[in-house]
């Protein structure tokens, strides 16, 4: 059962201009997103820069004012911005940021950084709090003495692990991870991803994994949504998306990933060219007259795609 429902979420930014600085138009950063999130699953949100994936994450976190639509958490509408410290939603939905360095306060010790959500939402004695912090550090594979250090004393991967520790401090149900590993080196990235998976198993939490790296998303996610211009283009299980992509945009994105297969690189390149060509020729069919993505239609139980007629792409 899904515990979080996102219904027709919209975030529009006004563009002001003209003589009286009136609102002349809107940027449709998010234009009608529907998602439902179940326990213990990982949801991938993929798209190119500017497609609105980070905005989705922020809107769910309550960091972005929602223009329209609803976020329903355990049956309650939480989209109105009146959540206080005692709101369970704020406690149960946490975030991991892309840039670990700038998301950790340089003047605070690791202990205080990790304790911040605990102090906000729970009443623990100093001893209990310390015990919890040690547990958390242990989970992300950091030594005990890390507690008394400052963020600058850690490497990039370690900082990101501290970010993970802070996010899980209050045992949340959902973690929004906005490009958590895109600034990290390959081997460090592997480490952080492994920790994220371990933690998921231990606490049974869900991730909304925002990334542009389709390789990482495939490794991490059960369910993947592809975004384009503030709307979902295609959504489905990992197999649906990778084995049977329907929308031309998804096909193009998948074809563009460099593959480690040196023998067949010409084949791969030819395939990419072909998809790119198809994209250029048939682009109009896949979007309506205003260049807007169509509404998602169900293809199978899990697989949804935004096509005018389902038959168009179903070759």
């Amino acid at each position: 059962m899904s515990f979080l429902e996102i219904e027709d979420l919209k975030v529009h930014y006004p563009i002001r201009g003209g003589f009286f600085n009136t609102v002349v138009d809107h940027v449709y950063a998010l234009d009608g997103i529907n998602m439902s999130i179940e326990r213990g699953k990982t949801y991938g949100l993929v798209g190119e820069s500017g497609s609105g994936k980070s905005t989705t994450g922020k809107a769910i976190m309550g960091l972005e004012k929602i223009t329209d639509g609803r976020i329903i958490y355990e049956g309650k509408d939480v989209s109105k911005q009146i959540r206080g410290k005692n709101s369970t939603y704020n406690r149960d939905v946490q975030m991991i940021f892309q840039d670990a360095t700038s998301s950790l306060n340089p003047k605070k010790r690791v202990r205080d950084i990790i304790a911040e959500p605990i102090r906000n939402f729970e009443r623990l004695t100093e001893g209990e709090e310390k015990k919890r912090i040690l547990e958390l550090l242990d989970i992300v594979g950091m030594p005990e003495d890390a507690m008394y250090k400052y963020p600058h004393e850690f490497s990039g991967g370690q900082k990101q692990r501290l970010g993970v520790a802070r996010a899980v401090a209050c045992r949340p149900k959902l973690i929004v991870a906005d490009e958590p590993v895109s600034a990290l080196d390959l081997s460090v990235q592997a480490q952080v991803l492994n920790f994220m998976k371990d933690i998921q198993e231990e606490y049974g939490l869900s991730y909304l994994f925002i990334s542009h790296d389709l390789g990482v998303v495939k490794h991490m996610c059960d369910h993947i949504s592809i975004m384009y211009r503030g709307r979902l283009v295609e959504s489905g299980t990992r197999e649906d998306i990778y084995k049977d992509p329907q929308h031309i945009y998804t096909k193009r994105l998948i074809a563009a990933i460099p593959e480690i297969d040196t023998e067949n690189r010409e084949v791969h390149k030819a395939n990419r060219r072909r998809v790119e060509e198809e994209y250029r020729q048939n682009e109009k069919q896949y979007y309506d007259e205003n260049g807007k993505v169509y509404d998602l239609k169900s293809l199978t139980d899990t697989h949804k795609v935004a096509l005018k007629n389902i038959e168009v792409g179903g070759n």
């Binding site: 991803l193 495939k218 990933i257």
Partner: peptide, 12 residues
């Protein structure tokens, strides 16, 4: 340590 496109759910 590369997340491979075809091998799934393995520890990296």
């Amino acid at each position: 340590s590369i997340p491979q496109m075809d091998s799934e759910n393995d520890e990296l």
